[in-house]
Design a protein around this nucleic acid. Structure first.
Length: 155
DNA sequence: GCCAACGTTGGC
DNA sequence: GCCAACGTTGGC
């Protein structure tokens, strides 16, 4: 079972939107970056755990967890001519973009700020810190355990 | 709002 | 296939 980190801007869609209807799933879509796409298409599997990270806010932080309830599948928005995310170069035969459905699991009592992540030695190799612009990134099992430990106590 | 880093596009 | 120009992201 894998661990991932998904980034989102909370003023658009954040952990509060996920937890609002805890039994519903949310489609994590509109991702238009090839590296992130490759993870969604090839590696994200139903049952994987997903850390949710809030960007473009203060403080930026890992704020909770969700669970992937599907494998990655073609993002419908790429076929919707009315969508801003419509991609004329994509086809049903050869979809270019992928998405995944997730369900809220937990909202951390103590969000883990980017500053705290950066000063935690066990996390120095984290993809989030190495490639800060990548919106879907892998988390190793060791990193996941460290993040869970940090979430249990304030900084 | 600024700016650095990074990703994408398109002419050649 | 290179690379300059341009667009986007995201921390601050």
């Amino acid at each position: 079972m894998g661990y991932w980190l998904f980034k989102t801007e909370p003023h658009v869609f954040g952990i509060a939107d996920l937890s609002e209807s805890p039994n519903k799933t949310a489609r994590w879509d509109e991702i238009r970056n090839y590296q992130a796409r490759n993870f969604l298409r090839d590696e994200v599997k139903a049952g994987d755990d997903v850390f949710i990270y809030h960007s473009q806010c203060n403080p930026t932080a890992i704020v909770g967890m969700a669970k992937a309830v599907t494998d990655g599948y073609p993002d419908p928005s790429q076929f919707d001519v009315k969508s801003d995310y419509f991609d004329p170069k994509s086809s049903l035969d050869a979809p270019r973009w992928y998405c995944v459905d997730i369900r809220w699991l937990t909202t951390f009592k103590h969000a883990i700020s980017l500053g705290r992540l950066k000063t935690t030695p066990e996390l120095c190799a984290m993809a989030l810190l190495r490639q800060p612009r990548l919106s879907v990134s892998p988390v190793s099992p060791d990193e996941a355990q460290t993040i869970l430990r940090l979430s249990q106590a304030p900084a």
